[in-house]
Design a protein around this nucleic acid. Structure first.
Lengths: 353, 353
DNA sequence: GTGAAAGCGCTAACAA
DNA sequence: TTGTTAGCGCTTTCAC
């Protein structure tokens, strides 16, 4: 039933090993035999068996992709299809397949990763998020197994980890400076989950810019929310309830910004007239908000592409030193930021018209 | 270096086969030996090798997930993470892993699928889209290999295909009827790619409702666009340029609706005052449009969950007859539809206040 | 340039 | 209840 290398060998009147060599296009086989063997393969409809190959060659030609736990709403962020598109492209070019984690909780994911590694199910792993005190990272770090992080390792004891990241600190700093230059003084920061290194970097960039401008950061202007949309909405409530509500918002994620704008709209606070907003990512739909949002394009696709690149490099040349890649970001000015008019003082919802 | 079954066997003083049986928790092994073997496994840090298992048992415990080609913008639809979440959940429950297609073009994908099947890389396949004249489907249909479609096979010569779908015809019909009842007569249909079976079903539902209401469908009111956001925007231009522009829009996809609303906004046409919109899917961000959109919740998660369910059933019981599952949909009324006021006649952009 | 044969690490049929 | 053994289908030394 299944056509094997032996069947092909028989038809082509060569040894199985020869067929194997033809499959890998070994240079030590004459063109004539190659021809003969290839014909036999076609005739029989031969297809190499993946598992047999992997077992014998100790290499699976597949990359494990670790998503954040799927219970989390984060999972539904259009960020992920886009990184995966980047990973896919590079992987496909080099004939690697993708194996996806399916865990719903962090523990499940850790278990899966252990299975991938120890069970030799994949040749390397890409982690699509970067958390503080991540068990998966800790585990991988003890394993001498190729992996790449999207984001950066938080803990510097994690030496020699290859990763792809944006300069999130700088991006947040620039964005804050931009708002400052627009005349805003009351700038709030709506961050994501504090477990993410990204959030920390954003916040530090924000703080630095304020410091440089001689503005004392106010604690009430910094809020963190786990969930994407709801988080955005709750943040707005918190912020608008302050006696000195902010005139500008830095939001960690475009999807969150949708939530923010939705809630602002409900409160009859106009963007950008009453409040300016700038956020991060520039996912596909970002340009479709009303008004279209100003955001930082972090080049999600490249993040994935480069990660695959780094990883495969590691797989191919074991013992290579860990490399880091910083993918450039770029502010995309659209219509949610405007110069501070000074009209909105003290109360939320004071329309500027 | 690698710990194998034999090492465990030696330590536990049993035969390798016994260890194998303990791994699969065979009932024919005494509890005492199991205990002994498990201890040895722990002591040595044993982990079963996946490829060896797969090769010997002719089963990989993994499901191939075929995405639409990643060059397409469709890929970025939050629909996909959500179906995958559904698939993940069920798969994980039954200890199946996920292998993802990475192709950028239809041909690449076909090739990948052939590799998955013939190379025995996966035990079954889930196709996440359903197109007219899909080569992947044709191929799979000749292979007697377990697979499940999300959507429905277009061609009825495709007998005995297991699939999970919504009643898209009915959904589109209901939605049209709803608008009709709201007093709209000039209802346009903004469909997706006509290659998708979904688009066809939507359109037929739309037509049927119009027919039943005794309204002659106008050709100009039916437009199709490939791309998600741009498509939505172009559709609006086409439609608003008509001498009798529609007063209501049925849009095939929430993301497209974002594009539609964006453009409408630019044209200063107000939703729902000037024009009503209803769309399909209810992805996470749908509630975050301004105004929040009325849409049909198609239960994306269940689509994935049930697909995995059907597929694994097929894998486990070969020769089982193909089953079909229709996942119920539900209209989610939000704020983009309103009773036709009669005020908007002839020209686009006539505001109703 | 090609063949023979040993294994990769596991499962499963057959014995015992 | 457990052990023996023959594969699963391929790669890869080692000969020639």
């Amino acid at each position: 039933m299944t056509v094997t290398i032996k069947d092909v060998a028989k038809i082509a009147k060569v040894a199985p090993s020869t067929v194997s060599r033809v499959i890998s296009d070994s240079p030590r086989i004459s063109d004539r035999t190659k021809e003969k063997v290839r014909e036999a393969m076609k005739e029989l409809g031969y297809h190499p068996n993946f598992n047999a190959r992997s077992l014998a060659s100790q290499s699976t030609k597949t990359i494990g992709v670790v998503m954040p736990n799927s219970a989390n709403k984060t999972f539904q962020n259009p960020f992920f299809p886009e990184v995966i598109r980047g990973i896919s492209t590079k992987s496909h070019q080099l004939d690697y397949g993708l194996y996806l984690s399916t865990g719903q909780s962090d523990d499940e994911i850790l278990e899966e990763v252990q299975d991938m590694v120890q069970g030799k199910r994949v040749d390397g792993i890409i982690i699509l998020y970067s958390k503080v005190n991540d068990k998966v990272l800790d585990y991988l770090n003890t394993q001498d197994f190729p992996f790449t992080l999207i984001g950066r390792p938080y803990d510097e004891t994690h030496r020699n980890i290859s990763y792809v990241n944006n300069d999130n600190f700088k991006a947040a700093k620039t964005v804050t400076e931009y708002l400052l230059l627009l005349g805003h003084k009351r700038i709030a920061f709506v961050g994501g989950n504090l477990d993410y290194v990204l959030t920390i970097d954003h916040m530090e960039g924000y703080h630095r810019a304020l410091q440089n401008a001689g503005i004392e950061p106010r604690e009430e202007y910094v809020v963190f929310h786990e969930e994407l949309q709801e988080g955005g909405q709750e943040a707005v409530i918190d912020l608008l309830s302050l006696s000195y509500p902010p005139t500008a918002l830095i939001v960690a994620d475009d999807i969150m910004t949708f939530g923010v704008m939705r809630m602002l709209n409900e409160m009859d606070v106009h963007v950008p007239d009453d409040i300016s907003i700038i956020s991060f990512n520039n996912v596909m739909i970002s340009e479709l908000s009303a008004p279209p949002m100003t955001t930082v394009d972090i080049n999600i696709y490249s993040l994935g592409y480069e990660a695959a690149n780094l990883l495969i490099d590691q797989i191919l040349h074991t013992g290579i030193e860990a490399r880091k890649v910083i993918v450039p970001h770029k502010m995309v000015k659209r219509e949610t930021c405007r110069r501070y008019s000074g009209k909105n003082t003290g109360t939320a919802g004071g329309k500027t018209v």
